[in-house]
Amino acid sequence: MKKIYGLYNDDEVVSLAAKQAVDSGLKVSDVYSPFPIHGIEKIVGIAWTRLAICAFIFGLSGLIIGISFMWWVMGIDWPMIIGGKPNFSLIEGLPAYIPIAFEFTVLCAAHGMAITYFIRNWTFPGAVARNPDPRTTDDCFAMEIDPIYNQNFTKNQIIDLFKTTGAFEIFEKNLGEEPTHLNLNNFSSSNVQPANVIIPAITEPTVKDALVKIEGIGPKIQELLYGAGIFTFKQLSESKSSDILVILTAAGPRYRVHDPASWPQQAALAFENKWDELNKWQDEHKGGKL
C-alpha cells in the first residue's frame, strides 16, 4: 500500500499537524524537513538518539588503548629514557603521554561516533535519497502517514486530516515511484472529523459586505476573511493589518505576497460610504499597496 504524504509550508504548522494527527489516533510515520524542527520527535514519538553514549564508549576505549600502547612501547617493548623521563613507571611518565592520549581519545570518539552516525542514518556515497519530494530539502515539510499502521482510518479520513491541518498538497507514493496526487477538492469531507480537532464555529451574520471592493482583495481572499469572521467593512476597518496577515499566511504561501496594510483604511472609507474618496485613493495606489 502506498504511503500518504501531506506537504506543508511551515515548520510550526507541520508540528501542529503532527500533533493533531497523533491526537486523533493516527500514527505518523515520519516528517521530512529541510532543517531540524525542535521538539517534533516528542510529538511523533521518536526516541532521542544514544549517539552521545556511543561517543563516550569510543572515547574511553581510545584513552585506554592510547595510554597502554604508549606505555608498552616506551616502557616495555623497547625501554627508553629520553630527557630523563621515567617511562618505566606509568604514573611518573604520565605527563608526557597526556597530549597523545587526549588526541587519541578525541580521534576515536569523534570518528567512532561519526561512523555510527553514518551507518544509523544509512548515508554513504552512493546511497539513495528517500525523501518523498525534492522540495523537502528546500522549503517544504512532508508528513508521512502509512495506511498499513492506520487500519482504523479510511484513506479519506487521512486525507481529511491533511486538509484540515493546512497541507497544501497531498499525494501518495512508494519510494522511487512517481507520486499520485490526491486532488484536494475531489473527495468527500463528510467523514467524521478527527476526534480532537475543533474548528471554532463562527456565527454567520445576515449582512455581508462585498469586501472585493477593497483594492487588493479578490474573491479568494474575501472567502478567507469571511471564514475568519470578518464580514463587514466595519469589522475590516477595525482589524489590524497584522491580524489579517495572520489569516493570509495561514492560508498558504501564495497569499503571503499580499500586503493588507491599507485594507482597514480602505474599509473605513467604504463603511462611511465615501466611495468617491475611496475610488480616488484606489486610482492613486495601484494594487492597494501603500
Binding site: Y32, I40, E41, T49, N121, W122, V128, A129, N131, T137
Partner: peptide, 9 residues
C-alpha cells in the same frame, strides 16, 4: 550521501 532529512536523521 543519500541524505533524507527525516526526524530521526
Amino acid at each position: 550521501w543519500g541524505w533524507t532529512g527525516n526526524i530521526k536523521a
